[in-house]
Amino acid sequence: MKRAGFSHRWLPILFLVPQLAIIFVFFYWPALHAIRSSFFLQDPFGFGENFVGLKNYTAMFKSAAYMRSAWFTVIFTVLVTVLSLSIALLLAVKADKVIRGAKTYRTLLMWAYAVAPPVAGVIGLVLFDQSWGPIKDFVALFGWDFRLGVNYFDTAFAMIFVSVWKQLPVNFIFFMSGLQSIPKSVREAALIDNRSASGRFWDVTFPLLAPTGFFLLITNITYALFDTFGIIDTIVKGKPGNNPMTLVYKVYVDGFRGNDLGGSSAQSVVLMILVLALTVFQFRLVERRIHYT
C-alpha cells in the first residue's frame, strides 16, 4: 500500500467486488468442490453419493493405468523441459550475438508463441502422417517404422516433439530478455578478462542467466503438465485408447468421458498438491533471486 493512500469507506470495496465475486464462484467453490468430491463415490446414474473416505485415493494409486500415466507424465515433463530449454538457450545466445539480421531471426523464432496448442497438434498429425508424413518418411530411411497412434513409443515421441516445438518461442523470448538485461559493462569486463568465447559464456553469461533459467524451469514444468492438453488431445484424435496420456488429460478422460467423478476429483486434488508444491518452490527461488541482483 502507498503511504499516502486514500481513505474511503466503500469505494475500494466496490473496486474489489468484481474480482472477488468471480474468484469465489469460479475458483474457491470449484476447488473446494473437487476436494469434497474426492472423498465421495458418485452413483453413475446420478442417484446420490456415498462417503468413501480415502478410497478414491487408494484406488487411484493402485490403478496400473494411473501409475502408467503418472510415469509417462514424469518422463514427458522432463524431456520437454530439458529439450526446449536447451534448444531455446542455444538459439537465444546465437541470436543475441549476431549483428546482421538479428531482428529478423528474433521475429522468426518467437512468432510461434501465438500458435494454439491444438494447431500444433494438427501440425504433428501432418508431420507424422502414416502415409506421407515428412518426418515419418525421414526416419524410415533409418529403418524406423513410425506408427503414430498405434505404437506407444512413437506416439509419445510425436507428442514430445510437438510440445517442444510449441514451447521453444516462450523460452527463447525469456532467454533473450535475460541476455539483454546483462549489463554491457559486465560483458565488456568479461571480454577483457577472458579471451575464450565459450569460457566467457560458462563463467559469466550462464550464471547470470540462472535466475531466468530457474524461472523458466518452473514455467516449463507447468506447461508440460497443463498446457499440452490441446496437443495431446489432437494427436490422439480424441481417442486415448492405449495411447500415452498425461495426468491432466486423464482427469478429463476419467471425469468427463468416464463419469468417474470421485476418482477424477482425487486426481485433481493430487495435481493441486503438485502445483502448490511447485509454486512454493518457485516463490522460494524468487526470494533467493533478490539477493542475486
Partner: peptide, 17 residues
C-alpha cells in the same frame, strides 16, 4: 491464491458450476 491453481486442475467442478 488463485495464481497457484490453473483452471485445468479444477475443470470438472467448474463445469458443474
Amino acid at each position: 491464491t488463485t495464481l497457484l491453481l490453473p483452471l485445468e486442475v479444477r475443470i470438472l467442478p467448474s463445469y458443474e458450476i
